[in-house]
Amino acid sequence: TKRKVAVPGAGEHPLQYNYTFWYSRRTPGRPTSTQSYEQNIKQIGSFASVEQFWRFYSHMIRPDDLTGHSDFHLFKEGIKPMWEDDANKSGGKWIIRLRKGLASRCWENLILAILGEQFMVGEEICGAVVSVRFQEDIISIWNKTASDQATTARIRDTLRRVLNLPPNTIMEYKNTHRQH
């Protein structure tokens, strides 16, 4: 089934790209195969302007208020938040582990930087995920070409700046092939 592509409304501020919000929650005791992952992930909606973004975001639960094993995903419209998608196949992601209580602020700063095109890496950004877990939370940003070191370095430096992370924060880059 073909979905309608989001378009900016009259008087709204268009974004460089359209994006889609997704939500997933792990069902305890179930295997995490690709099929069940795809079944557990739900589209919240797509947007094409700053105002449309706020209409979704303002009604979403903040990551710090989520319980259990849940994730919010923000990906460019047309890219599924999974490694199997063509846009992600040769890609990788920066991962930042956060102590509890920081995820809401970091997630908001991260998505505002993505929507505002603060990363300056052309078409490279695919999307971002905030993963709420029991002990800590994880934020990640995915890009298309894991082997492009200039791009991954620029993403890392922009992340440090926009998230205002403590200097000792550990950032880890994982690439698709190593993981699967």
Binding site: G9, G11, E12, H13, P14, L15, Q16, V50, E51, W54, R55, S58, N109, L112, A113, L115, G116, E117, Q118, V162
Partner: peptide, 21 residues
């Protein structure tokens, strides 16, 4: 081509627009 760039401050200001509700 031209890129549409917004800083954080501008994006946060748009939140209070009637179009954002």
């Amino acid at each position: 081509g031209t890129r549409i760039i917004y800083d954080r401050k501008f994006l946060l200001e748009c939140r209070s627009s009637p179009l954002a509700r």
